[in-house]
Design a protein around this nucleic acid. Structure first.
Length: 972
RNA sequence: GCGGAUGUGGCGAAAUGGCAGACGCAGGGGACUUAAAAUCCCCUGGCCGAAAGGCCGUGCGGGUUCGAUCCCCGCCAUCCGCACCA
């Protein structure tokens, strides 16, 4: 396949340059001045004006997931989603929307930093080179991005605002009363910390009424009170405040990779090894910044019902959030006594467990604590064999990697602590164990074990010979109650005060919980799997925290936010990007940067890569704003619901939707990015910075594109397809078309180069539908003669349209073909069915090729349908088509021409082909007038020639007539 | 183990209660050509049949229905998440 189907190598650069020069796809904000010549202004009568939001057409925000510009460049998977969104962006523009369709770079990241560690080259240089390569590749595909809105997370003008949003989080707390994030100033302090702020006024007032009070004495008292506040209470108040902030510091175990000398994010650890290099990763406790996403768990869950995401994606988020209803139950520790005295400190302690099955409390025959549980030290008898066992067991657990811990999960392990607790419902003395099947980080880190009705407890009890007591009767008598974990009926569950026997599980749960609450033994509660977000990384190439550390008078370290005026806080210059020898983050190497004149020390952690991608969609709305992360006007227009639906499209217009109207990307971000971004958005919403509760209204996951061998594309398999190669041979239009023709956007599907040839041939047919054969030959000769050096303009001018194209009325058959195509393509685009839209256009072209006369107007409308898919070819043919008319007003813009409307009147058939079934089996097809009545249909069906054999000698018992569709004759 | 998705010709797929396989690829035949490429036309699910035509066929087994690729129940397979979350 060497001969080109059509000169895409001339056409594509030509139009890309034209769009660039004209800024054709620039999206206009409220308050922007639209130049007189811009086709958007021409279309909407806004040329030369400065429209307000209410004067602009309705908005449509179509967003691609933020790419990380890797050194490897694009592979054919990336442009799948980009092509889909570009087609829709162009379609919505044609429908009359003001379309926001931006692109930018999630450019912080580990690879550039690792390259810097190895070579000493600043990560910014690597990053810039990679961005340049991505930009070139993406631009070569002719996407209609508004490049004036391009942004990169590594740009100080951008991360200034990432840091600013961090300060919003830092300066906020979650008010459980209002269920919202609020400024930290609204935090109310517990009584003992309130004294100075509020009560000292009362005290001085009281003193004012005191006969002995004098102004001097009052003043002295005030000073004393303030001093007391400063010295004694402020520390506590600060500690309290800091413990409530949405961004807080905690000592948490992190993934430390000694080999790489860095901490890794969970997502960078695969099966207990580093994703890069495959080195072992251990858990190590370190001081970390955390974000209080758990406070929003309930809303993150509930609001999923307000957005249009796929069920599977919503389900993944629900699972990740992991809400479960249950109860806390308190067990008292039974003192272990030696010679009349308890021999452990925790003798009077209470162990609180979380359970989703409080109804099984009577069957709790032992307790299990996580090995790390802080009470373990206190309850184990002093100097006992058990304590020695605990120490050994803990050491064993600590030495295991996460991988080993999960691999060995099948065989339960654990040791007895030597201590006992009292089951509050039956007073039984039950042993307390520790085992690593109980996680320290979930619930209370302690469980009540009900071996009869919990699989894990059952395994454990069998292994260690612990008692198994039935408290639930399965609904089915044949089911063994041992290990039965579903709902049933409570049995063996009663004491003098409460009886659950005979109650279904649900009712038993409610009854026991109420009883426990009334006795102060427990509490109904909701627990989440979601953990707070570990937000710091020991890296160089990330946003530095706008935080400094100071010491109070007692020499305790505390943190303080930098003022907004200190932003952006840039990372310091370094010669060496490795962590320090002591394991401090790389930023600690910058001694001058580290210490401020007042002695404060800067935070040396940086933010994770997720930070920048948490809010980029907001910045696109107003990316040049130096005074705010986004202006309220721009945010309100693009993310709000102010605009009205388009009157243009015939299919039901999309309703104005809150937030991004359509977000397309891979499933790999199903939980992390999409959960983090929703969280930030809700905080910004609560604080009044954005106008919607959810950022992404509709979200579609494109399916993975596999290699030609049906395997996932990877360098090691050698099956990676580089778009550059495909473009060279077939052009961007064919590439785009094939990406969409392969199958449904959401499906996983293999690449097939022969398939590209197929759609490429289709574009060739489109070309030949328009172009004169003789002119085509002349052009080819001219190109051969100049051997590629001829000017694009001169060469393309040789090409003339065919003489069969005439500005004459179309025949009814031609109009029918066109309108059927308009209808189907329009409906398919609204439903994101690109593959069937393309096959519809193929059918149209196959038919139109045979027309002796090709009406100008029909070809024009067809080009409008093709344009979103293969815009370069459509533009070129559009230009030539309009040149035929020599309209003094010039050639109208294809990109802003109105989407064609289909006329249902053109689609009506005079006669219909109706299948005739006998007993549900197809026997014949009859032709009837479109207006035939049911009776006429029945009559014609009974007379159908090929049906006679099957009707002979039988009586027709029943006739099913589906108007315009089918007749089914039922015979005995 | 749990959750989700998918299963249709040689291949990518279409049809989502009403003519299964549109459209494209691959394959076969023909036209044009000195020849090839390109292009254009025809055929192309399986089985039986010379043909007309018939029978079978949407992972498997049941069900609902005049009629099921489509809806319901039970399996199987593949892919993707999550995974001792009490």
């Amino acid at each position: 396949m060497s001969r080109r189907q059509y000169p895409f190598h001339l056409i594509e650069p030509k139009w890309q340059q034209r769009w660039e020069a004209q800024q054709t796809f620039r999206a206009w904000n409220p308050g922007d001045s639209v130049p007189a010549s811009h086709p958007f202004g021409v279309r909407h009568q806004l040329a030369g004006k400065t429209p307000a939001a209410s004067e602009l057409p309705p908005k449509f925000y179509i967003l691609d997931m933020f790419p990380y510009p890797s050194g490897a460049g694009l592979h054919v998977g990336h442009p799948e989603g980009y092509t889909a969104t570009d087609i829709l962006a162009r379609y919505r523009r044609a429908c009359g929307f003001n379309v926001l369709h931006p692109m930018g770079w999630d450019s912080f990241g580990l690879p550039a930093e690792q390259y810097a560690v190895k070579t000493g080259q600043h990560p910014r240089k690597t990053t810039e080179a990679n961005i340049a390569n991505f930009t070139r590749q993406i631009r070569s595909l002719g996407f209609s991005y508004d490049w004036t809105r391009e942004l990169a997370t590594t740009d100080p003008d951008y991360f200034k605002w990432t840091q600013w949003i961090f300060l919003q989080l830092y300066n906020s707390w979650f008010n459980p009363e209002t269920n919202k994030a609020e400024p930290i100033e609204t935090l109310t302090y517990p009584a003992e910390l309130k004294l100075i702020v509020e009560d000292w006024k009362t005290i001085t007032l009281q003193r004012a009424h005191d006969d002995h009070s004098t102004p001097e004495a009052d003043d002295e008292f005030r000073k004393a009170a303030q001093k007391a506040m400063n010295e004694e209470v402020e520390q506590s108040r600060r500690a309290y405040r800091d413990s409530k902030r949405l961004a807080y510091v905690s000592e948490a175990p992190v993934n430390w990779c000694p080999e790489l000398g860095t901490v890794l994010a969970n997502e960078e650890v695969i099966d207990g090894k580093s994703e890069v290099g495959g080195f072992p990763v251990i858990r190590k406790p370190m001081k970390q910044w955390m974000l209080r996403i758990t406070a929003f768990a309930e809303r993150l869950l509930a609001d999923l019902d307000t957005i249009e995401w796929s069920d599977s994606l919503k389900e993944m988020q629900r699972n990740w959030i992991g809400r479960s209803e249950g109860a806390f139950v308190n067990f008292t520790v039974d003192p272990v006594v030696w010679e009349g005295k308890p021999i452990h400190q925790g003798a009077k302690d209470t162990i609180t467990v979380f359970t989703t099955r409080p109804d099984t409390l009577f069957g709790a025959t032992y307790l299990v604590l996580a090995p790390e549980h802080p009470l373990v030290e206190l309850i184990a008898p002093d100097n006992s064999v058990e304590w020695a066992n605990i120490c050994n067991y803990r050491a064993e657990i600590a030495s295991k990697s996460d991988l080993e811990r999960t691999e060995l999960a099948k065989e339960k392990t654990g040791v007895f602590t030597g201590a006992y607790a009292i089951n509050p419902v039956n007073g039984e003395k039950i042993p307390i164990w520790i085992a690593d099947y109980v996680l320290a980080s979930y619930g209370t880190g302690a469980i009540m074990a009900v071996p009869a009705h919990d699989e894990r407890d059952f395994d454990f009890a069998k292994k260690f010979n612990l008692p198994i007591v039935q408290v639930v009767q399965p609904p089915d008598d044949k089911t063994d109650w041992q290990g039965f974990c579903d709902e049933g009926t409570a049995v063996n569950s009663g004491n003098a005060e409460i009886a659950l026997n005979g109650l279904p599980t649900k009712e038993a749960k409610a009854k026991i919980t109420t009883w426990l609450e009334s006795k102060g033994l427990g509490k109904k509660t909701v627990n989440f799997k979601l953990r707070d977000w570990l937000f710091s990384r020991q890296r160089y190439w990330g946003e530095p925290f706008p935080i400094v550390w100071k010491r109070d008078e007692a020499a305790n370290l505390y943190h303080e936010a930098l003022p907004e005026s200190a932003l952006p806080l840039l990372p310091p210059a370094l010669d060496d990007y490795k962590p320090t020898a002591e394991g401090q983050p790389p930023l600690a190497r910058a001694k001058d940067w580290l210490t401020l004149p007042d002695g404060a020390i800067r935070e040396t952690n940086t933010m994770p890569q997720w930070a920048g991608s948490c809010w980029y969609y907001l910045r696109y709305a107003d990316n040049k704003n130096a005074a705010a992360f986004v202006s309220p006007q721009a945010e309100g227009y693009w993310m709000g619901t102010a605009s009205s639906p388009s009157p243009i499209s015939q299919t039901p217009s999309p309703k104005p939707t809150p937030g991004v109207d359509l977000y397309v990307g891979g499933t790999e971000h199903a939980v992390l990015h999409l959960l983090y971004a929703r969280f930030w958005h809700k905080v910004l919403f609560d604080l009044g910075h954005v106008s919607t509760a959810e950022p992404f209204f509709k979200l579609v996951n494109q399916g993975l594109i596999l290699g030609e061998d049906g395997q996932k594309m990877s360098k090691s398999r050698g099956n990676v397809v580089n778009p550059d190669d495909v473009l060279k041979e077939f052009g961007a239009d064919a590439f785009r078309l094939y990406e969409m023709f392969m199958g449904p956007l959401q499906d996983v599907k293999p690449w097939n180069t022969r398939g590209v040839e197929g759609v490429y041939r289709f574009l060739g047919r489109v070309w030949r539908l328009f172009v004169d054969e003789k002119a085509e030959t002349d052009y080819e000769q001219a190109e051969t003669v100049t051997s590629g050096t001829g000017s694009t303009k001169a060469l393309l001018e040789i090409i003339k349209l065919g003489a069969a194209i005439k500005d004459e009325p179309a025949t009814p058959a031609q109009l029918k073909a066109l309108h059927a195509c308009i209808k189907k393509v329009t409906e398919d685009l609204d439903a994101l069915r690109f593959n069937t839209a393309i096959s519809t256009m193929m059918i149209f072209v196959n038919e139109a090729m045979a027309w002796p006369m090709k009406p100008w107007s029909v070809l024009r409308d067809f080009l409008l349908l093709l344009a979103p898919f293969s815009p370069h070819l459509a533009e070129e043919l559009w230009e030539k088509l309009h040149a035929l008319r020599a309209d003094p007003a010039g050639i109208p813009s294809l990109s802003y021409a109105a989407w064609p409307q289909f006329d249902p009147a053109r689609l009506v058939e005079d006669t219909l082909e109706i299948p005739v079934q006998v007993n549900g089996k197809l026997r014949d097809v009859i032709r009837v007038p479109a207006g035939a009545t049911n009776a006429e249909l029945e009559e014609a069906a009974k007379a159908a020639e090929k049906a006679q054999f099957f009707l002979a000698g039988k009586t027709v018992k029943k006739v099913i007539v589906v108007p315009k569709k089918l007749v089914n004759l039922i015979v005995a």
